[in-house]
Simulated scan of single mutants.
Amino acid sequence: MLSLFTGSDKKIRERHEELKKGARLKNAKELFFSGKFPVVTTPGLEGRKIRRVLGLVSGRGFDSECAFYGLTASALDIGADAIIGYQENVAFHPDGSRYFSCYGTAVILEKLPAAKTEAKPQTVKSFMH
């Protein structure tokens, strides 16, 4: 039996996936700009040790921001703390369009040691006269 409502469900699912993708990229952008998710071209981060290498992640698209934040979101999806060895390429097509491709290695970093706070000596005040 043919249902007239099948197309509607598909459109709703596609719209939901589009919204999730937009929120995913927005989160990646916020973490990158806040400095909480570093992306570097070097093979490591100065002052930080790599605890685990998760693997290669990539982002592609006709917009450089979508490619970059797609890459960042992919790394976040697998639990990465940073991307090292970042590289990017741009392909120019005869029709004038450009296609961006970027990749890097997703890593988990060693936790920073907790900042030690120096305990100040307590002074005892006397309330006796």
Rank of each mutant, 00 (worst) to 15 (best):
N27L: 13
S8L: 15
E46T: 10
K36L: 12
F37D: 01
R48Q: 08
V39P: 01
H16V: 12
T41N: 09
K21Q: 15
S8H: 04
K21T: 10
L31M: 15
G47W: 05
E18K: 15
L25P: 05
R13W: 03
A23Q: 11
G44Q: 03
R48E: 09
H16D: 13
P38A: 01
R52M: 11
H16E: 14
I50H: 07
G35E: 01
R51Q: 09
L45K: 09
R52W: 03
K11T: 07
K36H: 09
R15S: 14
F5L: 12
K26H: 09
V53Y: 09
K21G: 07
L45W: 05
K10R: 15
E18F: 08
L4S: 03
L25M: 12
R13H: 05
S34T: 11
K10N: 08
G22Q: 14
F5Y: 11
V53C: 01
K21H: 12
S8W: 06
V40M: 02
N27I: 11
L45Y: 10
K20R: 13
I12N: 08
R24D: 09
R24F: 06
V40I: 12
V39R: 00
K49D: 12
V39H: 07
F5V: 12
V39M: 01
R52D: 07
I12T: 14
H16F: 10
V39L: 07
E46M: 11
K20W: 03
K21M: 14
A28E: 02
